[in-house]
Protein backbone atom coordinates (compact mmCIF):
# COMPACT_ATOMS: atom_id res chain seq x y z
CA UNK A 1 0.00 0.00 0.00
CA UNK A 2 1.36 3.40 -0.98
CA UNK A 3 0.50 6.26 1.30
CA UNK A 4 2.03 9.40 2.87
CA UNK A 5 3.25 10.69 -0.50
CA UNK A 6 4.48 14.04 0.89
CA UNK A 7 6.35 12.36 3.74
CA UNK A 8 8.05 9.97 1.33
CA UNK A 9 9.20 12.72 -1.03
CA UNK A 10 10.38 15.05 1.75
CA UNK A 11 12.19 12.19 3.50
CA UNK A 12 14.05 11.27 0.34
CA UNK A 13 15.13 14.89 -0.04
CA UNK A 14 16.15 15.19 3.63
CA UNK A 15 18.15 12.00 4.13
CA UNK A 16 21.10 13.24 2.05
CA UNK A 17 21.31 16.52 3.95
CA UNK A 18 20.98 14.74 7.31
CA UNK A 19 23.93 12.47 6.48
CA UNK A 20 25.97 15.41 5.21
CA UNK A 21 25.21 17.30 8.42
CA UNK A 22 26.25 14.25 10.46
CA UNK A 23 29.60 14.15 8.63
CA UNK A 24 30.02 17.91 9.18
CA UNK A 25 29.33 17.55 12.92
CA UNK A 26 31.72 14.59 13.02
CA UNK A 27 34.72 16.13 11.32
CA UNK A 28 34.16 19.75 12.31
CA UNK A 29 33.93 18.84 15.99
CA UNK A 30 37.37 20.35 16.63
CA UNK A 31 36.13 23.76 15.53
CA UNK A 32 32.46 23.93 16.39
CA UNK A 33 30.05 22.30 18.85
CA UNK A 34 29.59 18.63 18.22
CA UNK A 35 31.67 15.50 17.92
CA UNK A 36 31.34 11.77 17.69
CA UNK A 37 28.32 11.31 19.96
CA UNK A 38 26.14 13.90 18.27
CA UNK A 39 27.28 12.94 14.76
CA UNK A 40 26.59 9.27 15.46
CA UNK A 41 23.07 10.04 16.63
CA UNK A 42 22.36 12.24 13.60
CA UNK A 43 23.72 9.58 11.22
CA UNK A 44 21.53 6.97 12.92
CA UNK A 45 18.52 9.29 12.56
CA UNK A 46 19.01 9.33 8.79
CA UNK A 47 18.51 5.55 8.71
CA UNK A 48 15.78 5.50 11.35
CA UNK A 49 13.68 8.09 9.49
CA UNK A 50 14.01 5.95 6.36
CA UNK A 51 12.84 2.95 8.37
CA UNK A 52 9.87 4.86 9.82
CA UNK A 53 8.61 6.42 6.59
CA UNK A 54 9.32 3.44 4.33
CA UNK A 55 9.62 0.13 6.13
CA UNK A 56 11.96 -1.88 8.29
CA UNK A 57 12.60 -4.26 5.38
CA UNK A 58 13.68 -1.35 3.15
CA UNK A 59 16.17 0.04 5.64
CA UNK A 60 17.49 -3.42 6.49
CA UNK A 61 18.19 -3.98 2.80
CA UNK A 62 20.42 -0.87 2.87
CA UNK A 63 21.98 -1.64 6.26
CA UNK A 64 21.55 -5.29 7.29
CA UNK A 65 21.47 -6.03 11.05
CA UNK A 66 24.70 -8.07 11.01
CA UNK A 67 26.56 -5.07 9.56
CA UNK A 68 25.14 -2.73 12.22
CA UNK A 69 26.24 -5.12 14.97
CA UNK A 70 29.75 -5.24 13.51
CA UNK A 71 29.82 -1.41 13.26
CA UNK A 72 28.98 -1.02 16.97
CA UNK A 73 31.99 -3.15 17.87
CA UNK A 74 34.24 -1.58 15.20
CA UNK A 75 33.96 1.87 16.75
CA UNK A 76 35.14 0.71 20.17
CA UNK A 77 37.93 -1.18 18.39
CA UNK A 78 39.07 1.97 16.53
CA UNK A 79 39.08 3.95 19.78
CA UNK A 80 40.88 1.35 21.86
CA UNK A 81 43.15 0.53 18.89
CA UNK A 82 44.36 4.14 18.82
CA UNK A 83 45.29 3.72 22.47
CA UNK A 84 47.04 0.42 21.84
CA UNK A 85 49.06 1.89 18.94
CA UNK A 86 50.35 4.74 21.12
CA UNK A 87 50.95 2.20 23.89
CA UNK A 88 53.19 0.02 21.71
CA UNK A 89 55.15 2.94 20.21
CA UNK A 90 56.53 3.90 23.59
CA UNK A 91 53.98 6.46 24.77
CA UNK A 92 51.18 6.25 27.33
CA UNK A 93 47.85 4.63 26.51
CA UNK A 94 45.82 7.13 24.43
CA UNK A 95 48.73 9.61 24.29
CA UNK A 96 48.16 10.88 20.76
CA UNK A 97 51.63 12.42 20.49
CA UNK A 98 52.68 8.90 19.41
CA UNK A 99 50.89 9.36 16.07
CA UNK A 100 53.28 12.11 14.99
CA UNK A 101 56.42 11.98 17.17
CA UNK A 102 58.15 14.95 15.54
CA UNK A 103 55.13 17.22 15.86
CA UNK A 104 53.10 16.26 18.95
CA UNK A 105 50.39 18.87 18.30
CA UNK A 106 49.62 17.27 14.91
CA UNK A 107 49.56 13.91 16.66
CA UNK A 108 46.87 15.31 18.98
CA UNK A 109 44.82 16.36 15.95
CA UNK A 110 45.08 12.92 14.29
CA UNK A 111 44.29 11.20 17.58
CA UNK A 112 41.21 13.33 18.26
CA UNK A 113 39.89 12.72 14.73
CA UNK A 114 40.46 8.95 15.09
CA UNK A 115 38.82 8.52 18.47
CA UNK A 116 35.90 10.77 17.53
CA UNK A 117 35.44 8.59 14.44
CA UNK A 118 35.39 5.54 16.69
CA UNK A 119 32.79 7.14 18.96
CA UNK A 120 30.70 8.15 15.93
CA UNK A 121 30.74 4.66 14.40
CA UNK A 122 29.80 3.02 17.69
CA UNK A 123 26.97 5.44 18.46
CA UNK A 124 25.55 5.08 14.94
CA UNK A 125 25.68 1.30 15.21
CA UNK A 126 24.22 1.18 18.71
CA UNK A 127 21.32 3.54 17.98
CA UNK A 128 20.35 1.64 14.84
CA UNK A 129 20.77 -1.69 16.68
CA UNK A 130 18.37 -0.57 19.40
CA UNK A 131 15.91 0.75 16.81
CA UNK A 132 16.02 -2.56 14.90
CA UNK A 133 15.62 -4.55 18.12
CA UNK A 134 12.48 -2.62 19.08
CA UNK A 135 10.76 -2.35 15.72
CA UNK A 136 11.47 -5.84 14.45
CA UNK A 137 9.25 -7.21 17.24
CA UNK A 138 6.25 -5.11 16.32
CA UNK A 139 3.53 -6.08 13.89
CA UNK A 140 2.99 -3.32 11.33
CA UNK A 141 0.29 -0.99 12.62
CA UNK A 142 -2.30 0.87 10.62
CA UNK A 143 -2.50 4.63 11.07
CA UNK A 144 -5.86 4.44 12.83
CA UNK A 145 -4.31 2.60 15.78
CA UNK A 146 -2.79 5.83 17.09
Amino acid sequence: MRHHLILRVVTKLLIGSIMLFALYVQFHGDYSPGGGFQAGVIMAVAFIIYGIVFSLQDVQRVLPPWLVHKLSALGVLVYAGTGVVSFFTGYGFLDYAALSPHHPVHGQHYGIILVELGVGITVTGVMITIYYAFTSRTPVMDDEAW
Binding site: P33, G35, G83, L94, I112, V115, E116, G118, V119
Partner: peptide, 25 residues
Protein backbone atom coordinates in the same frame (compact mmCIF):
# COMPACT_ATOMS: atom_id res chain seq x y z
CA UNK B 1 49.69 25.16 22.74
CA UNK B 2 49.22 21.48 23.70
CA UNK B 3 46.24 20.44 21.54
CA UNK B 4 45.60 23.52 19.39
CA UNK B 5 41.93 22.93 18.59
CA UNK B 6 39.52 25.87 18.94
CA UNK B 7 36.77 23.82 20.62
CA UNK B 8 38.18 23.22 24.10
CA UNK B 9 35.29 20.87 24.93
CA UNK B 10 36.55 18.50 22.21
CA UNK B 11 40.13 18.79 23.49
CA UNK B 12 39.04 17.87 27.03
CA UNK B 13 36.65 15.13 25.90
CA UNK B 14 38.91 13.36 23.43
CA UNK B 15 42.40 14.08 24.70
CA UNK B 16 42.70 15.14 28.37
CA UNK B 17 39.80 12.87 29.37
CA UNK B 18 40.34 10.25 26.67
CA UNK B 19 40.00 7.40 29.19
CA UNK B 20 36.57 8.63 30.29
CA UNK B 21 35.35 8.86 26.71
CA UNK B 22 36.66 5.36 25.96
CA UNK B 23 34.67 4.18 28.96
CA UNK B 24 31.56 6.00 27.74
CA UNK B 25 31.90 4.42 24.31
Amino acid sequence: HEIDVPNIVTAILASYRGYDTLGET
